[in-house]
Design a protein around this nucleic acid. Structure first.
Lengths: 206, 206
DNA sequence: CCAAAAAATGAATCATGGTTCACTTCTTGC
DNA sequence: GCAAGAAGTGAACCATGATTCATTTTTTGG
């Protein structure tokens, strides 16, 4: 008898896989999905190109995994803000949006990659899940706000998507970096924009 | 003496060029920039691949031209709504947003391509111009509204970007087609969202 | 140390799709 | 009709970058 997978090896393989993912995440934030190449990722990991294929069936699978990984990190952060139990809903939403915006500004290429950059179908599928998770987070909060009457009635699904879109566009769209708006005030302004959109009772208050 | 460019030829060349652009526009709305291939475009035009290169230096130049072409069409439409001189500013903005949204819904792939799909640097440059034009349209209207006091004070540049982002995301983002929201109500809702965002005087009116 | 089996390697291969160019066809003025 | 020159052609070429696979290196239990 001979080779048998041992705990040591299993752990090393797991470490390698995690190492690949974390290097991929760093690369993603430098070049986006479109610039993510198997060869350069391998070099970054001190591995041969072929080795990547022992851990992921193909580039698509790898990208999906990277996507999921990044997603979990982001969603968790926002989630936390939304579930602060003692605070009123509008404040929680404002905090969540601010977190979302700050993180997006800190890693704009990643944010762009998660939100909008087009990629192969498998990653698109992953992104749809990602967006759904976000949409659900905010939509749920909005609905709770409506039922508590701290928010006016509205289509929560649509509002939550518009929230994400408004922030994404204002902060990380291709145009955003042209105008040297001070980042903090940009965040404040866009959160204000969003909050007014969902809290205002009607135009007639103009 | 011999060949000399004649009016007939000049016109025919112009017609060919326009034909290429219009076919490219159709293709764009089917497959986006990423799916736009020189060979298939040529076939669609009943031309040889090489011929395209007699009209455009390379794919990048062609895409830029297509982009500009599409842009002009879109911006003109929105512009019209914003410049209706007799109507109050908020109404004009609402109409402009509605036009924007309707057109985006009618040709979602094109809208996506113009707003967000990532492409080569030259097209990105064109997109930045496109967004700037939009941003300027809305920002100008918002500023006018502020000075007329039909809108509250706000960062007009940021608001106008957020407007576009909110609508784009709500209506044409990858997630949008998942939920079978009735198109008209989606437009109404997102315009309402935007309008409240820019017209609400403060949260305190909640 | 050995044989078995897996893991790692990286140069060669393949696929895609833009670009070129030698050649053919068309247009023009005489 | 003809020569000059442009327009049009499309198969061959090239660049990029993912994927494969024959070979080498490691690991393991005995």
């Amino acid at each position: 008898m001979a080779y048998r997978e041992t705990t040591q090896i299993r752990q090393r393989k797991q470490a390698t896989q995690e190492n690949i993912l974390s290097n991929a995440l760093t690369l993603l934030n430098e070049v986006g999905f479109s610039g993510l190449q198997m060869a350069s990722l391998a070099k970054r990991c001190n591995l041969a190109t072929g080795t990547l294929y022992r851990y992921f069936a193909n580039k698509e699978a790898l990208c999906s995994a990277v996507f999921e990984h990044a997603t979990n990190i982001e969603v968790t952060q926002v989630q936390q803000q939304l579930s602060a139990p003692e605070k009123p809903i509008p404040e929680r939403i404002a905090n969540a949006l601010t977190t979302f915006a700050k993180r997006a500004l800190r890693a704009p290429v990643t944010a762009w990659a998660l939100i909008a950059e087009p990629v192969e179908p498998a990653v698109i599928a992953a992104r749809i899940k990602y967006r759904e998770r976000y949409a659900n987070l905010f939509a749920q909060a909005i609905e709770q706000g409506i039922s508590e009457q701290s928010l006016p009635p509205q289509n929560s699904a649509l509002s939550s998507r518009a929230l994400v879109g408004a922030i994404a566009e204002a902060l990380i769209g291709p145009l955003a970096h042209q105008h040297e708006l001070e980042p903090n005030s940009a965040i404040l302004e866009s959160v204000r924009f969003c909050l007014q959109a969902i809290t205002a009772r009607s135009h007639s208050c103009v």
